[in-house]
């Protein structure tokens, strides 16, 4: 059982973990998520899924923390998937080119997974 360093909703399945991103991805929540993701990567998890179903807003600092997670996954050779993004968040990530760097599931519809790689 993984004991999280910070309180956050996660779901573990084998060597995969789903981390539920909070309503507003900003400095405090971004800091929490980055810490948890680094913890899982250091413990050997090879696939991280960031679930954005609750996330309505992402600010610049939140984007920066997300880039930190992307970079950490690349260094660890782990897979990262962003899922259940709402339209606004997806559009933002697409405009910033983040969707070119990481696998993204489309808007809040589990059936319409879109691999942009």
């Amino acid at each position: 059982m993984v004991e999280l360093e910070v309180p956050l909703s996660v779901f573990l399945e084998g060597r995969e973990v789903v981390v539920y991103v909070e309503n507003y991805l900003n400095k405090p929540s971004g800091d929490r998520i980055e810490k948890v993701c680094l913890q899982f990567l250091n413990e050997g998890y090879r696939k991280l899924i960031l679930d954005f179903r609750e996330t309505e807003l992402v600010n610049s600092i939140g984007v920066s923390f997300l880039l930190g997670i992307i970079d950490a996954c690349e260094r660890h050779g782990s897979e990262l998937v962003l899922t259940n993004l709402n339209e606004n968040v997806f559009n933002l990530f697409e405009l910033l080119g983040i969707t070119k760097r990481v696998k993204v599931d489309f808007i809040e519809d589990e059936s319409s997974t879109r691999d942009l790689h």
């Binding site: 400095k27 971004g30 600010n59 610049s60 600092i61 939140g62 984007v63 920066s64 923390f65 880039l67 992307i70 970079d71 910033l96 080119g97 983040i98």
Partner: peptide
């Protein structure tokens, strides 16, 4: 530190 986050996050600069 926060300023660096803002700068990187504004244009999605990796590092």
């Amino acid at each position: 530190r926060v300023s660096l986050h803002l700068l990187l996050g504004s244009l999605a600069i990796m590092r």
